[in-house]
Computed example of a mutant assay.
Amino acid sequence: MASDFHRPTRFPPGMFEGFLGGEDPARLSRVAHDTASAILSRVRADPDPDVVERLVHYTDEHGIDSIAELWSQASAKSLPGALWRVYLLRALIRQDPLGSSLAFQRGTEVSHTIDQVVAGAPVPAGPDEVRELADRILHGLFTGDFAVALDRAAAFARVSSSGLTSLADDADAASAVNAARPGELTRRALRLTQLADELASCARLWRRDSLD
């Protein structure tokens, strides 16, 4: 897959959905688990700020496909699967910070849950704020409470999904302009809901010391 991209990778339309929509393989790669465990254990044991910064910004230099090669095929409910999904969410936000902030902001207006508080983004949250939030969440995986970081990522995804669903309703009312837009927004919302569910499951497993 890496040969298909130039680094750093930008997502062509539909790639985010393609990554999340793929089936997990029946047999997990031992390399994925070993690398995820080794990186996380080493950095959390000695969270050197420079090392953490390099890990947070690793895909900015090397591309998301370099992470995908290691972890994208791991089970959704596994340590490499959790790391992959947080990196993927960050990549989505950084590629389209304006669209991500609009979806999140609309979600805060239509959602009646505590997810926006759990996510930790300011309200209103513009493009700069959602980019910063994505980095803070990834930092939290390496230096903070791992389960809390996963819950924050899940909450952001749920709020954004609610926002995209609402935006899809608006687009449906104006579908004469772009008939494909409501379906596109709805599919993105469903993928984010799936992502949120997977991250929340990983957080529960981590708290039970069962995420490997």
Rank of each mutant, 00 (worst) to 15 (best):
L83F: 05
I39S: 11
G120C: 08
E53V: 13
T35G: 03
S100T: 12
G22V: 04
R94L: 14
S78E: 06
D48N: 15
A147R: 12
R85T: 02
D65F: 00
D24I: 03
H33K: 08
R131V: 08
A119K: 01
V123G: 05
P122A: 10
F19P: 01
E23K: 12
A38M: 13
I39Y: 11
E69G: 09
H139A: 00
I137N: 02
D60N: 04
L141V: 13
L20Q: 11
S66A: 06
A147E: 14
D65M: 02
E23R: 14
G18T: 04
D24M: 04
L138H: 07
I39W: 09
A103K: 12
D115E: 12
P47L: 13
A154F: 12
R136P: 00
S29K: 03
V118W: 08
D24G: 07
L55E: 13
D128P: 00
A91Y: 02
D60T: 00
G63N: 02
A68I: 00
A119M: 00
F16A: 07
L83S: 06
V43T: 15
A119L: 00
P124C: 07
L102W: 09
V43Q: 13
S78T: 12
G21C: 08
A76H: 08
A125W: 13
F142H: 08
A149S: 15
A103W: 05
L133P: 01
D135N: 06
L102H: 11
A154L: 14
A76P: 04
L40T: 15
I67M: 08
H33E: 11
G22N: 07
P127I: 01
D48L: 12
D50Y: 10
D60Q: 05
R106Y: 04
V118C: 03
S66F: 00
A91D: 10
D50G: 12
G18F: 04
P127H: 01
R131Q: 10
V117F: 11
I39C: 14
A125D: 10
A153L: 14
D34L: 12
L141W: 05
D46Y: 13
L83V: 03
P80H: 05
A32F: 03
A26H: 01
A91S: 15
V123N: 10
G81P: 03
T59I: 00
S41W: 07
V31S: 06
